[in-house]
Nucleic acid binder design. Structure first.
Length: 682
DNA sequence: CGGAATAAGCTTTTT
DNA sequence: GCTTATTCCG
């Protein structure tokens, strides 16, 4: 049934290329969409067009790779749908219930089909930190921790497991290709990973990779695969260049003949190779079908000025392999700048100055962003911004859920929900004064195989020194088990609070985090949903930073280059555009890794609409390589901008950034005081 | 046995 | 600087 009265304007702004993608019929479709070419708008318009022509929104599956992209797409499609269907302004936008990341959708389908595939419906989801802890536990229990020759650490073991699953390659191959320093341990690793899988199943836990792997295996059953494939009339995949072999396999089973399958991506923006993303997925997509998939390329850029685009094009043109395409724009503007500064503090000062200058020129803070390769590259800038009272929000930084106190409280809730959650139990038991690893292990060993683990918990006899505190915990456990949501969360915190104060100096700050967690908890219908969704969609940052700015307040964006994908800002500053940072010296081993770093810089540069500045500190400090000791490095402009590209950039060496030796502290102090005085005048 | 003190290694990007 | 494994002491 077609909806009546569609509003024609909803599609009026599409160009010919975009319209071709939107109007394409049922056959497999590949949209190659360069940066800033209206990829999300096109995908959203296609969704709206499908619904306008009678598709049921319930039966559209929109898969994305990151949470941010998923959210953005669902929102824009909703808005467009609203207009395309001619809804009144007061009517709520239609909902697309099946829009989300691969992982979130996988979790939902598995939860729904759990009974059929022999999975406990209340299965828990391990985030990476939890998975690492579990791996560590298994690693130790299997005796790999105490070998004479150094065995890979838990994080490395998990990374290997993850790559095996996501790339669908054999373990030996993965170790040889990507973890060369672990060669010789293949057999032990195999044993460890098997034990890890067994342990997860025993505790009814799935890690991130399992959400995809179980989904794939669920569709080994032809009847289930057919049912799920038929259920979703259209499957649309965003950021296809960042999907891995496992995700491609899932799609192949969902839509074997490609009918109803649309994928959108840009090989020049493939930056998730470290997660086993496979660019070949997009390069080889058309030929997978007979007849081959239709290819539509979007090359008209609506975001950036021509000088910014010319520089970005030139950077990516030096890459080895790609779908050659030249983006074009007809907006004029200034050349991107390469700014030399003395060191990282000077870099921070220059950026802060420039951000304020732009703001005076009418560019709000929210329309400016500072991008960097790794989370800690922004440390000096964060200090400078705090000193000047410039509010900011950082993406890709310290994770709320990784803070010890948050993990503690969540473990309490998880253990009560699932008494077989050994990891949570291990953590919680040791919070009781007088219980250490040995007692905790004794308890959990007894609970693990028991038919009624809770009975074992009550029968447990702790060391006599711990008796009183243990009884307190048991009382809290029982109260928690009986309490409705969200009271249960409050009970958990009431029990945890004395432990927090005993264990942490800065208990007050941490308590604020937990109170925030409690508020978040209240927004969910129940413990189960809360725990599951928190893992897949966690809050951004811990509140022990500057404090989350109010929503209506203006703030500067700080983001890793990875988290910046799909975003755009009027002015963009790229920190540390030097060799060693981009490309990261972690990634200079293999040619493919360096190529990925090149694309990463390309992604960062193409975020800018009007102003782009690449910062080059002449000197920067390297810590964390204790073998060599902390030291200064004399840095040079990134190799991705060789001398031949110089005409496309303006070189800037600010006078103010070259203070006499010894002047620096004075200069800095004066600047701050003046600004503070001016602010104080109002 | 539990917990503090000491020694040693490693370090990105995200679901 | 941060985590993890080992050693030492109560």
């Amino acid at each position: 049934m077609a909806h009546p009265d569609p509003e024609p304007d909803a599609f009026a702004r599409l160009n010919a290329e975009q319209r071709a993608a939107v109007d394409h019929g049922d056959g497999p479709l590949l949209v190659i969409a360069g940066a800033g070419t209206g990829k999300t708008a096109t995908l959203a318009a296609r969704v709206a067009r499908l619904v306008r022509d009678g598709a049921d929104p319930q039966r559209l599956l929109l898969l994305s790779f990151s949470r941010r992209a998923a959210q953005e797409l669902a929102q824009r499609a909703g808005r467009l749908l609203h207009r395309a269907l001619g809804f009144a302004p007061t009517q709520a936008a239609p909902v697309l219930p099946w829009a989300g990341t691969f992982h979130a959708v996988g979790a939902r389908l598995l939860r729904e089909q759990a009974e059929v595939i022999g999975l406990a419906p209340q299965f828990g989801i391990l985030d990476r930190a939890d998975a690492e802890d579990l791996m560590g536990l298994v690693r130790q229990e299997q005796g790999f921790a105490a070998l004479s020759r150094r065995f890979p650490l838990k994080g490395t073991c998990l990374a290997i497991a993850s790559r095996v699953v996501n790339s669908r390659c054999a373990l030996d191959e993965v170790v040889a290709e990507h973890f060369a320093w672990c060669r010789g341990w293949e057999d032990e690793l195999r044993r460890l990973l098997r034990a890890y899988v067994q342990e997860k199943q025993r505790q009814q836990l799935l890690d991130y990779d399992d959400l995809l792997l179980y989904w794939l295996h669920m569709m080994d059953e032809p009847a289930l695969a057919a049912a799920l494939g038929a259920r979703f009339a259209h499957v649309l995949v965003d950021e296809f260049q960042d999907t891995n072999r496992l995700q491609a396999a899932i799609l192949a089973r969902l839509k074997p003949d490609g009918r109803g399958l649309t994928v959108v991506g840009d090989d020049a923006q493939a930056i998730y190779g470290f997660r086993a993303a496979e660019v070949r997925n997009i390069l080889e997509f058309p030929a997978r079908f007979d007849p081959p998939a239709r290819i539509v390329a979007l090359t008209r850029n609506y975001r950036s000025t021509q000088p910014i685009l010319a520089a970005s094009n030139a950077v990516i043109a030096l890459a080895d392999q790609r779908f050659a395409k030249e983006l074009h724009s007809d907006r004029a503007g200034a050349l991107p700048r390469v700014v030399s500064v003395e060191d990282e503090p000077a870099q921070a000062r220059w950026v802060a100055d420039e951000v304020l200058r732009q703001r005076e020129g009418g560019v709000t803070l929210k329309r400016q962003a500072v991008l960097f390769r790794t989370g800690h590259h922004s440390a000096a800038l964060e200090l400078e911004l705090a000193r000047r009272d410039i509010p900011f929000v950082k993406y890709g930084g310290l994770k709320f859920l990784e803070a010890a106190h948050v993990k503690d409280l969540l473990s309490v809730l998880r253990w009560v929900q699932n008494p077989r959650h050994r990891l949570a139990g291990f953590r919680v038991a040791q919070l009781v004064p007088g219980i250490g690893p040995a007692s905790a292990r004794r308890l959990l060993d007894a609970m693990g195989p028991a038919d009624d683990p809770v009975a074992v918990l009550h029968a447990f006899r702790p060391p006599s020194a711990a008796a009183a505190d243990w009884a307190t915990w048991l009382a809290a456990h029982d109260a928690l088990q009986a309490a409705p949501w969200p009271e249960a969360a409050a009970i958990a915190l009431r029990w945890y609070r004395p432990q927090l104060e005993r264990l942490h100096e800065d208990a007050t700050i941490r308590l604020a985090d937990l109170e925030q967690l409690l508020r978040i908890a209240a927004g969910y219908g129940g413990r189960e949903r809360f725990l599951a969704e928190l893992t897949l969609d966690p809050p951004e940052a811990s509140s022990d930073e500057a404090g989350p700015p109010l929503l209506d307040e203006d703030y500067l964006i700080l983001s890793t280059m990875h988290s910046a994908k799909g975003q755009e800002w009027s002015a963009v500053y790229v920190l540390n555009a030097v060799d060693g940072c981009i490309p990261s010296d972690m990634a200079t081993g293999r040619a493919a890794d360096i190529e990925e770093e090149r694309r990463l810089l390309h992604v960062a540069m193409t975020r800018a609409q009007h102003q782009l500045a690449l910062l080059v500190p002449q000197r920067f400090y390297v810590t964390q390589q204790s073998r060599f000791g902390d030291r200064h490095l004399y840095a040079t402009l990134t190799r991705f901008i060789p001398a031949s590209l110089a005409p496309l950039f303006e070189r800037v060496v600010p006078e103010a950034q070259r203070p006499q030796e010894g002047d620096r502290a004075v200069t800095g102090a004066a600047r701050i005081d003046v600004l503070a005085a001016v602010r104080g005048a109002f």
